[in-house]
Write a protein that binds this DNA or RNA. Structure first.
Lengths: 236, 236
DNA sequence: ACAAAAGTGTTGAATCTACACCCATGC
DNA sequence: GCATGGGTGTAGATTCAACACTTTTGT
């Protein structure tokens, strides 16, 4: 190690969050309107600077709370990727660690202290570039959505989009929205039920406006890997 | 954004590499003996400080070359994860971005300028703690191996462990070593051949010491996703 | 001839897909 | 009754796992 002290680039670290939910039959992302330069007034992912001695995941939950009022205590949070391109932030060398959060349908967030406002936006509007985000946040969002899509295939993660208890139909709805394709309700039902540890019945049922009441389930004990995976047999 | 300047923790960024290869029927990782404090004389993953204005992936290839003499030009390199626990480095707040590299059987590296020596070590010896690494590198290695194992299932990545051209037997050997389980040569053959874009025949054959010569293949045009995946049907 | 590795055939089991069909509720 | 969504049955196609068997080389 002959690295001299001046070869060690000191950088600022930020944490940004891709918070996804399923609302109104669409996959939506939580965005804020930036209140300060750079990119003041523009839409961006929630996030901010890591504080001295703070852990990344702690910082992620804190920023989420401060900027959007969303309580991060019980949502699924996983590290997505780190972005460090030189020109990504006009303030200098700012490296960001992006996190992916998946949440059940959340209340419309109330503006916190650090943001003028926060809101849900359908990801389709952002990915198609009709809504443009600050920094490289369009890219980060695209990576997050891609991660979510593929994780639905080989993990039980879809259940975190649902509430504490849910019907198989609701779970199927999550898959259909995230993958953007219809699934056969009858085959989906069987597949989920017979996959060990995916969901477990609560015994209760839920009545919708119309139709037969559906059995309610909660998340199974299998946290992640699905064997065999839920296949989307169409082309990718 | 009311973040004051002192709330922005300046950190040092390092890049560390989990370089995996298949040698002598074992999955092996490239390690160096640290030449400087902290952890001088102890084994560690190759890596080092990011230089001002340097991109992460460039830094990863540079450190690999400087510390081990391995030419990173043509090996598969992907970001693994970022580690930022407060106590992970005695020098202060040092955050590391870990990269995973997969390479065909490489020559035994010659020591470079920054390391007293570099060598291959079977990952089993490290994961079982009979070999202990500096910093949190044991954890980083475990995460890298886990990533490699699962990527073999649903991507064509196993081919990067092979040379430019390879036999199906060699490819199967990669799977067997990384997954640590025997596979049926006959079924494996068919599965790989019929999976569109996995491998394509070169027309040539290769003779081993004994047995019928095997047809040679090169990587197919499908870079990543495998549909359907190569399933390990046994318990995980 | 024999050993060894490559590759093909085949068979029964399991799974997937596309339906027909029944069930339970609100209106 | 009728619309609507929940859930079961089932037949044909596809895939999988296991293993017999043939092919092609070196010795």
């Amino acid at each position: 190690m002959t690295t001299s002290r001046r070869d060690r680039a000191p950088v600022s670290l930020t944490v940004d969050l891709v918070v996804l939910t399923v609302r109104d039959g669409q996959l939506q992302v939580l965005l804020i309107v930036r209140g300060a330069e750079p990119y003041a007034g523009q839409l961006a992912l929630p996030g901010g600077f890591l504080r001295p001695g703070e852990d990344l995941e702690v910082a992620a939950r804190r920023e989420l709370w401060e900027e959007t009022g969303v309580e991060g205590g019980m949502l699924h949070l996983e590290q997505l990727r780190t972005y460090a391109a030189r020109e990504r932030d006009p303030r200098g060398r700012v490296v960001t660690v992006a996190y992916l959060a998946l949440a059940p349908g959340l209340p419309i967030p109330s503006a916190g202290t650090d943001a003028q406002s926060a809101r849900w936006e359908p990801v389709g509007n952002v990915l198609s570039k009709s809504v443009s985000l600050a920094f490289d946040h369009n890219q980060i969002l695209a990576d997050g959505v891609e991660r979510a899509r593929s994780k639905l295939e080989y993990t039980t993660l879809a259940t975190v989009f649902c509430g504490e208890t849910f019907t198989i139909g609701e779970l199927r709805h999550v898959y259909e929205v995230v993958w953007g394709m219809p699934l056969d309700p009858r085959n989906f039902n069987r597949k989920v039920i017979k996959t060990d540890g995916f969901v477990e019945p609560t015994g209760a049922t839920r009545s919708l406006d119309t139709g037969r009441p559906a059995a309610l389930y909660r998340r199974g004990n299998k946290t992640d890997a699905l064997h065999p995976p839920m296949l989307r047999t169409t082309i990718t």
